[in-house]
């Protein structure tokens, strides 16, 4: 008995140590990549100069401008949107009880992309400009339409792989229409629009930053508050209900929050693939648990680190030309997803 208790305490300690290690590593990675991201670029800025510029607002005026109006907003956006995207993936995985669900594969990002493209073209040709809020709203409408469609399909198709195929098809249809619209739009902003429709963190304004920090921040808090019913829901809908979870309300919250998150990302950075699947998976493996209360913050941090890292590569690998962010996230994310599927297959046998 006493031996049991000892191993017990030991296991609890080991677990906690593991969580702490993962969080500490993520935070270190976050800091390192942030500094690297400000440091590296067409104009390299040393760490000392970065400190001066950020904390004392002193230094070379060109460098000041580069840091404050180009690199810093871009980094913050990569962090916030990356975190939001990975969180949105985790929510969808919980909802469908399938680790391969994510905003990109289910066509939700593409739905948002389509409505945002339409809104941009319309707004640019009639009003000349478009505000962040309008873009997010448009993206939200688009992602809700795609999500609604997926939900309807999911009542007909109980098979998860069929559902994923349906999602990918929705994605293709939306992308095709978007490409079509973008091709025929005769705007001076066409280059920008084209870049955006492939996914990019470039050209972010502080206005964008403000909007996404608020939206993603609020969503994050709400998601975190859902961690208790989420852990019940992981045992299945019926068990969750028997533990007192209001299933309808809970499912609605999940879908709304994941849509808000993926809509915010798509509105500002376009569709970004694989982050929503690969990051939650890696995080759960690293923590060796799927407990929402630890996975949620870790997922957010992980997504932020992952997207900042990918963005660093996107803009420096073939400088001065930039890669699409999705190109980079796919290169790192897709193998993770394949490895995960193989592993799951093995576990089944």
């Amino acid at each position: 008995m006493s031996k049991d208790l000892k191993t017990d305490a030991y296991d609890v300690l080991k677990r906690r140590l593991r969580y702490e290690t993962v969080f500490v590593l993520l935070i270190i990675a976050f800091c390192v990549i942030t500094v690297l991201n400000i440091n590296i670029g067409s104009v390299p800025i040393s760490v000392k100069e970065i400190a001066e510029i950020i904390f004392r607002r002193q230094g070379d005026p060109t460098q000041m401008k580069i840091v404050w109006s180009i690199r810093l907003p871009r980094i913050i956006m990569a962090a916030v949107l990356g975190g939001g995207l990975s969180l949105s993936g985790f929510l969808l995985q919980t909802f469908f009880s399938n680790p391969i669900a994510g905003p990109f594969v289910l066509g939700i990002s593409s739905g948002a992309k389509l409505t945002v493209a339409l809104t941009m073209i319309y707004a640019l040709s009639y009003a000349g400009s478009v505000s962040s809020i309008v873009l997010v709203l448009a993206a939200f409408v688009g992602s809700m339409i795609s999500t609604g469609f997926i939900l309807i399909v999911s009542t007909k198709l109980k098979n998860m792989s069929a559902l994923l195929v349906a999602g990918i098809m929705i994605g293709y249809i939306c992308s095709a229409i978007t490409d079509f619209v973008v091709t025929f739009a005769e705007e001076s902003d066409i280059v920008n629009l084209h870049n955006w429709s492939l996914g990019s963190f470039s050209g972010m304004s502080w206005d964008n930053v403000k909007a996404s920090v608020i939206l993603v921040g609020v969503s994050f808090v709400l998601v975190f508050l859902l961690s208790k019913p989420m852990s019940a829901y992981q045992l299945g809908e019926n068990y969750a209900r028997s533990m007192g979870v209001n299933i309808k309300l809970f499912r609605t919250c999940l879908i709304l929050l994941s849509s808000v998150l993926s809509a915010t990302v798509t509105a500002f950075a376009g569709p970004i693939s694989f982050v929503g699947i690969a990051v939650p998976h890696l995080i759960k493996r690293a923590l060796n648990t799927s407990k929402p209360i630890v996975v949620i913050p870790a997922c957010f941090l992980g997504g932020a680190v992952f997207c900042m890292f990918c963005d660093l590569i996107a803009r420096t690998a073939f400088a001065p030309s930039e890669l699409n962010i999705s190109t980079v996230t796919s290169i790192f994310g897709a193998p993770v997803v394949i490895a995960m599927m193989i592993r799951r297959q093995k576990e089944k046998q």
Binding site: K228, A232, Q234, L235, M243, K284, N288, T289, S290, K291
Partner: peptide, 25 residues
């Protein structure tokens, strides 16, 4: 059910849900 990465203790502990606070600690 096929919960992902949950220990037996995690499963049993979900039974405390109706009694725990908002974060389920």
């Amino acid at each position: 059910m096929k919960p992902e990465l949950m220990s037996c203790r995690d499963i049993v502990a979900t039974g405390r849900h109706p009694y725990t606070g908002n974060l389920g600690l």
